[in-house]
Design a protein around this nucleic acid. Structure first.
Lengths: 341, 341
DNA sequence: CGTTTTTCCGTAAACGTTTACGAGAACACA
DNA sequence: TGTGTTCTCGTAAACGTTTACGGAAAAACG
């Protein structure tokens, strides 16, 4: 049985009101009694019951990150998120907020779970990732007036919520630039088939750069697949079957690149030798694969911290003196040149 | 502002007691009024406030999975856990329990965070992973009498908690068997340097099998490193510098194997050709790497479901008619033979 | 010493639920 | 008709906190 504030008060022969004030650092309590309370709290190792506190304050002091396993044959999550979550957590902790990760069901797209989290007031705000071009989670949250922030942009919801995104458009553009500079004209693009927004952004940049270089966009060289190894493996042969096959491939996802490289190897094509390969989001895999993969790297941990800061700035309870602000940012990626292109 | 049970009661002109009983499926409420309550609840989309309910019931109906990012140069988490979590979640949901993942700080070993979760009664039980040989989290939880279960065994805490583990000992044993059968006598073992229990189990099996085959254990062929790509990359050259270098390596972790293969490649050694490689825990990486990596695969999603079931069986509130039971199981791995050995 | 201010603490209400208890109405039965 | 039973619902307490309010004691001030 956990000790309650009543136990503590009884043990010290003072009222629970005083105990609470002492623990919460209020001014109207004698320095001496405060010390006694703190000591006793440590001795009985008392921590305030989270439900009681939340109920009274109308705030849970916790933030949910909604993690959505992608559908696919074998759902291994994206290691991508871990450094981001570390940053998110660190910044939130500075303000006394706890981060928790809420998993959705792999099949349906998180809506039911999100409703549950929101309607039962489980947390004070949520953070979404894997934003879609049209995202009903965002529509729902803005309609409900529930605080949230997103990792990734969306066309839904307007400018009513903080968002932080990676500049995938620019990355797609730069990747083409780099490949063209190295003499490539037949450049394929492989991205996830889900309507994840970053897939569109990437493709926009890809198209824009091709146009700038006077290269016609060949739809045979653009393909979609599952956002995992299998997807890359299945879809890469597709672009290779083009009448005029590519000499370079840009993968919009590291796992897809891995599957794609396997498919290439089976066709007797050696990445980095017979085929230039660039990956849009760098992971340790890219650095240790053979050949090492040229990739664009986001600053994930700082991004986590930043998005936490942006979320806090949008919350009345945490906003500065100028009141809540909606901040939206797009961060560049850093090109890590390696052997594969 | 979210609607409360009072709003609902006022709207229907009945008491909150009746509303609550209707929603909770109690018998002593007229079928007709129950329907009216349910309809109204849907219309006002009311869900009971989680804090209020938890406070009254003394139970939060949620379970925490403690996720601990490993220290290291770049912390990308183990994708390993996702399928496990999917299974865990699915089974818990069947019993009305919510799963949440609580992240620890990367540096310190989760103790502080765990205390916080436990002492504030944030959840009803916790699930630990990455168990250590001597695990102070386990000591803490059993001493505190807080319900928990572990993925992985430990020497701490006795048989007082449910645990589910993979048979790493057997895997280490079988790996050696297989390599010896293929003519290898110089077999290296590379495992994480943290005192994670599975590292010990693996090594036990490795040693036992060598002994059985009359091969002396050469400590030059056993090495520890960071549990990530960098670790494998750094430590593999170490065993290669042995006076009598190995002809086969067993990696206790897929990320370490990836780093190790890179190190080998840089030494001009081709895995699967000049060097046999076996990985203990299979991930998609193993299937798509070149060469494809022979690996031992656990049934992660079923394991998640099973551990959830075992945890529930140990909780008085969910145990069957025979009362709570402590179940401990060790599951075999399946060998997936590929090209690397 | 009288008055005002300050310091400190106890009292009690409130947050949103669930649930034990009791009571009124309807019904069954003799 | 009287008694016992069943059905249905309202009342109120309780879970563990925080906090507005008021008051007693101490301190400050003239």
């Amino acid at each position: 049985m956990a000790s309650s504030i009543h136990d503590l008060a009884r043990h010290l022969n003072i009222s629970i009101g005083t105990v609470s004030r002492a623990l919460n650092g209020r001014a109207d309590v004698n320095a001496d009694t405060r010390q006694r309370v703190l000591d006793a709290a440590k001795k009985l190792n008392y921590s305030p019951n989270r439900s009681g506190r939340s109920l009274r304050q109308g705030a849970t002091h916790s933030i949910a990150f909604m993690l959505q396993p992608h559908p696919g044959d074998q759902q291994y999550g994206e290691p991508f998120f871990i450094p981001f979550l570390i940053g998110l957590q660190a910044k939130l902790a500075e303000h006394g907020l706890d981060l928790m990760v809420v998993m959705g069901e792999p099949g349906q797209y998180q809506q039911e779970r999100l409703r549950r989290v929101v309607e039962t007031r489980w947390v004070d705000a949520v953070v979404l990732a894997n934003t879609r071009r049209e995202d009903d989670r965002i529509d729902y949250l803005s309609k409900a007036g529930f605080p949230f922030a997103t990792l990734g942009r969306s066309q839904s919801g307007g400018d009513t919520y903080p968002s932080l995104d990676i500049d995938f458009e620019r990355a797609g553009d730069e990747a083409v630039d780099r490949l063209v500079a190295r003499g490539h004209r037949r450049i394929a693009a492989i991205r996830p088939s889900l309507d994840l927004n970053f897939g569109y952004l990437f493709l926009d940049g890809y198209r824009k750069a091709l146009k700038r270089h006077g290269i016609e966009v060949d739809s045979d060289l653009v393909a979609d697949g599952f956002i995992n190894e299998t997807g890359g493996y299945q879809v890469t042969p597709q672009v290779m079957r083009s009448k005029d096959p590519p000499t370079a491939i840009i993968f919009n996802n590291d796992a897809m690149a891995l599957g794609g490289c396997k498919a290439l190897a089976e066709m007797g094509i050696k990445p980095g030798h017979d085929m230039a390969v660039i990956v849009i989001v760098d992971t340790p895999l890219c650095r240790y694969f053979s050949p090492t993969l040229t990739a664009f790297r986001p600053a994930l941990e700082p991004m986590g911290q930043r998005l936490a800061g942006m979320l806090l700035a949008s919350l009345p309870a945490f906003a500065g003196p100028d009141g809540p602000r909606i901040i939206r940012e797009v961060w560049p990626l850093e090109l890590i040149a390696r052997e594969s292109d």
